[in-house]
Every structure is written in C-alpha cells, then in structure tokens.
C-alpha cells in the first residue's frame, strides 16, 4: 500500500484512488474469493457505517419535513417551512459566511501547506520522519486545550499583546480575539496537518526525475511546477482541501471559543437549534444543507481527480 493510504483514515477520501482503472479492485475481489468471505471482511465495517452513520442520517433527513413541537420535539405533520427558512437572509447569510470562512481557511492552508509538504518530501529520510511527527504532534494534546491556548495568547492581556507592548510596537492591547480572522486562525491551526499529510504523500510519490525531465526540455522552475508538479499532485491537493474544508465548515467549537460565542458559523447555528431552541426539524434542515454542500464538493473532487488521474509516473 502506498503512503497515501496509510495516512487516510479508513473509508475517508475517495479522492486519490477514484481515478484509477478498475484493475486493482478486481484483483482485490478475486483475492477475497467467495461471497461469504467477502461478507466476513466487509461485514463489520458495513455494520458500523449502517448503525452509526446511515441510521442517524436517515433520522435527521426525516426530521426536515416535519414541524417542531411547541415545547421542542417533533410534530409529525408534513411541511416545507424548514427549507424556506433556510433562505431567510438571517440564516442564509450565516451558511454563506461559513462557506467563506471554510474556503478561506482551506486556501490559506493550501498556500502554507504546499511548500511545507514539498520541503518535507525532499528531506533526507531520517529528517522526513522527524518532520512528519512534528506535523502531527499537536494532535497529541486535547483539541479544546489547544483552542483555549489561543484565547490565552490572543486575549487583551494575553501573550501576544504583552509581547507587542513590551517591545513597544503598540501602546494599547489589540483586539485580537472574537473576529473572523481569529476563527480562520484557529481553524487553520487545527486542520493544517490534515492539509500537509495528503500533500506530502502526493509529493513524495512524485518521481523527481519528472521535474528533471522538464528542466532538461527547457522549462524554467516555475513552468515545471505549473505543468508537471502541480497537475501530478492534484489528487493530494484535492484530498487535503476536502480534509480541511469539511471539518472547518461544520466546526462549532472554534467559533464558539475564538469567535465570541455568537452564531457566526453554521455549526453553532445547528448546535443552537438542537440544544437551545430545541427546533430539531430546522436544525436538521441546516445540517442537510451542509451535507449537500459537502456532497457537491466530493463529486467535484472525484471528477477532478479522474481528470488528473494517471497513476503512472509516481513512485509506488
């Protein structure tokens, strides 16, 4: 198995493999032999997906067409009002804003992550391992603690302000917390490794001789990057973007803590519908909207990685 598969959680990211010819899967199914054996292998995973993913999802889906009860709960009376409410400017704005924040986070993560991943992939073997461990090191600490650490750093009397006033760059503490930039910073900090790892796997698999061949044929380094490196690492780019965009879009912890607790992102909105307003149907409709965006995204990714497919020429 390639490095990429090792890094991707099982069942996640159809991206990097989606463009491959079907040869591989037919070989795999032959290896699994009879239908019984196949079931034995697939059973646990499928059961898990069915019970923990499909059933709750079906529940959420069905809620969307019903009314909320007066004191919470669901009244089983069909209505389309949950969907019309989605387009209420108040909510629509939040959904759009969340997509913007997630997209911005993804873009910045890509711009920061690509050079990092590239540099790591070209390190000597020993340093490569050390650098990769460093990339995933933050995951060893609790997510909440890490986000609160940002509050401590960015708050009025926090580290950053102290340092800046200390060396005399500013006189008054800056308002660093509770804005969109803070949210993007927090999301970026949390999910950058998810961008770097698939990028690293894609760049690592790229045959360095292809870059040399390009130079040999008269291409400047920038042209080589655009015509050879970038298209051939596109599956990694797409995977990384999905890995960052998806959790960013649905995140409600970071906007809550770093965004000042207002309903800034759709994640908070959904959470509030379920836990505060106790409007399950509308919360479900919002959740469905997010899922719809993600499904469109996954289709785009699958399509794009088919366009850029071609597994030859990468070191396997």
């Amino acid at each position: 198995m390639t490095a990429k598969h090792d890094l991707a959680p099982p069942g996640a990211a159809p991206g990097p493999t989606a463009g491959r010819p079907p040869r591989r899967s037919s070989r795999r199914s032959r290896a699994l032999g009879t239908a019984g054996a196949r079931l034995a292998f697939l059973g646990p995973g499928l059961g898990y997906l069915f019970v923990l993913l499909l059933v709750p999802l079906a529940l959420v889906l069905s809620y969307t067409v019903f009314r909320r009860g007066r004191f919470g709960g669901v009244v089983y009376e069909a209505t389309s009002e949950n969907f019309t409410r989605l387009f209420d400017p108040l909510y629509f704005h939040i959904v759009l804003g969340s997509i913007k924040i997630a997209a911005l986070t993804t873009l910045v993560a890509l711009l920061l992550g690509y050079p990092t991943a590239y540099a790591i992939a070209r390190l000597p073997r020993k340093w490569k391992t050390i650098a990769l461990v460093a990339v995933v090191l933050p995951f060893w600490t609790n997510f909440l603690i890490r986000v609160y650490a940002w509050v401590i750093m960015l708050s009025g009397p926090g580290l950053v302000n102290e340092a800046l006033t200390g060396i005399g760059i500013i006189d008054k503490p800056l308002e660093l917390l509770y804005n969109q930039g803070t949210i993007v910073t927090g999301l970026l900090y949390s999910y950058l490794p998810l961008m770097i790892l698939p990028l690293y796997a894609a760049i690592e698999r790229l045959d360095p001789q292809l870059g040399e061949a390009s130079a040999n044929l008269g291409a400047r380094p920038a042209r080589t990057f655009l015509s050879v490196t970038l298209p051939l690492t596109m599956p990694g780019i797409l995977t990384g973007c999905v890995f960052v965009f998806v959790p960013s879009l649905g995140n409600f912890v970071i906007p809550e803590i770093l965004g000042g607790g207002r309903s800034i992102m759709v994640g908070n909105l959904i959470r509030d519908q379920f836990l505060k307003a106790r409007d399950y149907p509308f919360g479900s409709a919002l959740a469905l909207a997010v899922i719809a965006v993600l499904i469109v995204l996954l289709f785009l990714q699958a399509w794009a990685s088919r366009v850029y497919g071609g597994t030859e020429g990468r070191r396997g």
Partner: peptide
C-alpha cells in the same frame, strides 16, 4: 548554465515520461 538552458537533452534510464 542551469539545466534548462543547456543545449543538451537526456533520455532517462527510466524514460521519465509525463504520465498526465
């Protein structure tokens, strides 16, 4: 001279064709 400015072409041992 940098590689891309040399009037020299190399046929690689592994061919190094652009797969895409």
């Amino acid at each position: 001279r940098p590689a891309h400015r040399r009037p020299v072409n190399l046929m690689f041992q592994s061919y190094a064709l652009f797969p895409h």
